[in-house]
């Protein structure tokens, strides 16, 4: 199967956007080659602004540019975008509701060899707690491109979370991406697996394995973590025996947290959270790390067995 890193799809989407709209500008903090904003820099050097290794100012520059009517896309690693510059994002971008799009890469533990200092396992919890902010986690190159186009066309602050690794193409080119709408990729009535980002592929593989045991798992790629697709989640809670959330993030406050919050108020149902168990990532081969830290296909299958027991 052909694979492509979502960040490469992002870089390509930026160039397309840049061709269409002169108001699109791009800022980075000395990671343009890694985040792939370098593609935009090559195409539109006069519209690319490096903030240097200074993420607080990076956010402030973007805020000021947005205040003059531009549409800044801001990129760096997720850990720095959402933690080093978070108060700037909160007070200079989200609070004044400025039209800045933060597209962060190397989220989760996919940045294996760099170790935990460069990984981001808290960003979803942080960003979704900030008012006015849309939070999107694309799962493949197609949804990455569509998400980038969607946030460019929708006024307001947005956070798009991308990983590092190459992703399979899970969607066709004509997929209708809509902010706040998830996609049901597999039908099933025994249980529901709701995943985001690189864990969607693993959720599908887990569903395949479960099918061999005659367990039919519904698989939902939520795509947008905020605002939540409440209808799709409530329907899954009503129609299946329970929900497993799967994210390359801490089990606290991210996808799993968001779904527990919704269901506890609207339709109490059993939810098991697959993700990092309130711990940092680690160093090493990313696939092995996923296995060591409970983010593997087997971890999802084990959760399914616990749920149905």
């Amino acid at each position: 199967m052909t694979r492509l890193a979502n960040r490469i799809a992002y870089g390509e989407a930026l160039v397309e956007l840049g061709r269409r709209d002169p108001k699109v500008v791009v800022l980075d903090a000395d990671l343009a080659k890694a985040t792939q904003t370098d593609r935009f820099r090559q195409a539109f050097p006069e519209r690319f602004f490096n903030a240097g290794i200074a993420e607080q100012n990076l956010m402030g520059l973007a805020a000021g540019m947005a205040a003059t009517g531009l549409i800044p896309f801001v990129s760096t690693f997720a850990v720095f975008a959402t933690m080093r510059g978070v108060e700037q994002f909160r007070n200079s971008i989200a609070y004044p509701n400025l039209n800045v799009k933060v597209v962060a890469t190397h989220a989760g533990i996919e940045n294996g060899p760099d170790g935990a200092s460069h990984q981001s396992v808290e960003d979803l919890a942080i960003m979704r707690a900030i008012p006015n902010t849309t939070v999107i986690v694309p799962s493949d190159p197609i949804t990455t491109k569509k998400a980038v186009e969607a946030v460019a066309q929708t006024y307001g602050p947005a956070y798009i979370r991308l990983g590092r690794a190459e992703m399979p193409f899970l969607y066709a080119e004509d997929f209708q991406f809509e902010i706040g709408k998830g996609a049901q990729l597999r039908d099933g009535y025994d249980l529901t697996i709701i995943a985001v980002g690189n864990m969607v592929e693993k959720a599908l593989l887990a569903a395949d394995e479960l099918a061999k045991e005659r367990i039919r798992a519904r698989v939902i790629d939520l795509l947008t973590v905020k605002p939540l697709d409440e209808e799709l989640i409530l329907k899954a809670a009503q129609e299946t025996r329970g929900i497993i959330t799967v994210e390359n993030h801490s089990i606290l406050g991210g996808l799993g947290g968001a779904i527990c919050e919704l269901l506890s108020e609207r339709y109490p149902a059993r939810v098991l959270r697959v993700g990092l168990q309130d711990r940092f990532g680690g160093c090493g081969n990313p696939e092995l790390l996923h296995e060591e830290l409970g983010l593997s296909v087997d971890s999802i299958i084990a959760a399914a067995h616990r749920l149905l027991k």
Binding site: Q56, N57, L61, A63, G64, M65, A67, Q88, S92
Partner: peptide, 22 residues
């Protein structure tokens, strides 16, 4: 510009100056 958290206004001003020039 919305300000109050110290140090942030000057960053936004730099961004505005960049944006106006561009």
């Amino acid at each position: 510009m919305s300000t109050g958290s110290l140090g942030q206004g000057i960053s936004a001003a730099v961004g505005m100056a960049l944006g106006l020039k561009y």
